Simulated scan of single mutants.
Amino acid sequence: MSTESRSLVVDRPGCHRLVLGPRPEPGPGEARVRVAAAGICMSDRELHDGHRDAAYVRYPVVPGHEWAGTVEAVGAGVDEGLVGRRTVAEGFRACGRCERCRHGETSLCTAGYDETGFTRPGAFADHVVVPARLLHPLADDADLRAAALLEPAAVTAAAVRAGAPEPGERVAVLGAGTLGLLAVQLLAAFSPAELTVIDPRRERASLALDFGASEALVPKEAEEVRGRYDLVVETAGAPSTAADACLLARRGGRVVLTGMFTPGAVGIDPVHLSLSQLTVRSVFGAPSAAWSYAVRAFTAGLLDPAPLITHEFPLERFADAVALVGAGGPETGKVLLRP
Rank of each mutant, 00 (worst) to 15 (best):
R102A: 13
C246F: 06
V78L: 11
E221H: 08
G259Y: 07
R281A: 15
T106V: 06
A265K: 06
P307G: 08
R100V: 06
R6Q: 14
D44L: 13
D79M: 04
L179N: 12
G96Y: 03
A193I: 00
L82G: 03
R133Y: 08
G21W: 06
L18F: 07
V255N: 06
A125I: 05
I40G: 13
D199P: 00
F211W: 15
L20N: 13
P314W: 14
D210G: 09
V283C: 02
R317N: 09
S240C: 02
V62W: 13
G329S: 15
P219Q: 14
E66I: 03
T87S: 13
G21E: 13
D141S: 06
H311C: 07
L336A: 11
L302S: 10
V88M: 05
H16Y: 07
Y293D: 12
R32D: 15
P22W: 00
P152C: 09
G75M: 03
Q185E: 13
A172R: 11
F298Y: 14
G122P: 11
R228H: 14
T70R: 15
R32C: 15
H48T: 05
G267E: 12
V295H: 02
D126S: 02
I309A: 01
H127K: 00
R202Q: 13
R281K: 11
G29C: 06
G84Q: 01
S240W: 12
H65M: 04
A76G: 14
S276R: 15
E224F: 09
W67Q: 01
A76T: 02
E166T: 11
A89Q: 08
P200Q: 10
D244C: 07
D199R: 04
L209N: 01
G329F: 14
S276P: 03
A94D: 02
E221R: 10
D140I: 02
V129A: 05
E194V: 06
V83K: 04
P314T: 10
E90R: 11
A89R: 04
T310N: 10
A286W: 01
A189I: 06
A188C: 06
A147W: 14
R201P: 00
R86I: 04
D143A: 06
A216E: 02
V233C: 05
F313S: 00
V232L: 02
T156C: 15
